[in-house]
Design a protein around this nucleic acid. Structure first.
Length: 290
DNA sequence: CACTTGACCTGTCCGC
DNA sequence: TGCGGACAGGTCAAGT
């Protein structure tokens, strides 16, 4: 059970936060439009999560790399012996995570107390993520949403659209281009490496040198990788915990990412790690040639 | 406008 | 053992 099933209908009783950059709204707005409001809906667009409130405001949340939302049920919040269904984590996992974690901990940035005695913790070790309270009608107008590209898994998104959108970045390498969220949403460093390996494209290949069949294959591989990741519950390779207490992970299925010095699953060549577009990049030197 | 690099952060790991 | 530096990766600002 995800947050979209757990949160709607619950009220916000109180909000506490200690790191201004994690929750930059003015205190009076929080008091007026957040505290006392009820959650109506949880949505996602690109890598951004939105929690709609009946005050006509929306909590817009970006977890970045280390952000995590942890829902803790009434039982757990009251210190009773927890079961798996009492805690739901959404986002990056951390080595210390466990079902009996004491929360808040030192990475807790925001605490939401909810109307049924449950709590929602926004944890973010590196403080890159944020929570913003924005009028619901203005959410589509924030800079990120005005610029971000299409959802790669939507039915309307075709390989021809990917090809056309890539033309804006034709003089850069393909890895930088597919990491660019204004070209297509939702492809981060892990899925970029996995999709490029799947399509047998070297990450430093210039976009303008890619053929239509290559772009079509990359499109197919990117969609397959993203869908597999959703099916496996994300990529947090440590301790992702879903409602059943399962800790499955896409990273168990990664074929090149963080697999340097291991054999390529397709040809056996040793996978290497380099830096492309400022990011750690994993490639098979046999399958992926310039 | 296109493109690249550095900044934002903390925790971990590696070499000396 | 301690210590400095590199690294992790999403986005934005500032640079060329």
């Amino acid at each position: 059970m995800g947050l979209s099933r757990l949160l709607p209908g619950k009220g916000i009783v109180s909000v506490t936060h200690d790191w201004p950059k994690s929750f930059p709204n003015a205190a009076k707005d929080v008091q007026e439009f957040l505290v006392g409001a009820s959650i109506t809906c949880v949505r996602r667009r690109a890598k951004v999560l939105m929690v709609d409130l009946d005050s006509q405001y929306t909590l817009v949340i970006h977890l970045k790399m280390t952000g995590q939302l942890v829902f803790v049920s009434k039982n757990l919040a009251n210190g009773k012996k927890p079961t798996a269904k009492d805690e739901v984590r959404f986002g990056a996992g951390h080595p210390n995570d466990s079902l009996v974690n004491e929360l808040p901990d030192k990475s807790t940035r925001v605490i939401f107390e909810l109307s049924d005695d449950s709590k929602l913790f926004f944890n973010d070790q590196r403080k890159f993520g944020w929570v913003k309270l924005i009028p619901t009608v203005e959410v589509p107008n924030i800079d990120f949403f005005k610029k971000v590209g299409p959802e790669p898994l939507s039915a309307e998104f075709t390989w021809q659209e990917l090809r056309d959108r890539l033309q804006r970045r034709k003089n850069t390498n393909i890895k930088a281009a597919i990491l660019d969220q204004t070209v297509v949403a939702g492809i981060g460093n892990i899925y970029a490496d996995e999709a490029l390996w799947g399509a047998k494209i070297h990450p430093t290949t210039l976009v303008k040198n890619l053929s239509d069949p290559q772009i079509k294959l990359l499109y197919q591989e990117a969609r397959a990788v993203l869908q597999l990741s959703i099916d496996k519950g994300g990529s947090s390779n440590r301790n992702y915990v879903n409602a059943e207490g399962k800790r499955g992970s896409y990273m168990d299925f990664a074929r090149v990412f963080r697999r340097e010095k291991l054999p390529c699953p397709r040809c056996g060549t040793t996978i290497i790690k380099t830096k492309v577009a400022g990011r750690g990049t994993h490639t098979c030197p046999t399958c992926q040639v310039l």
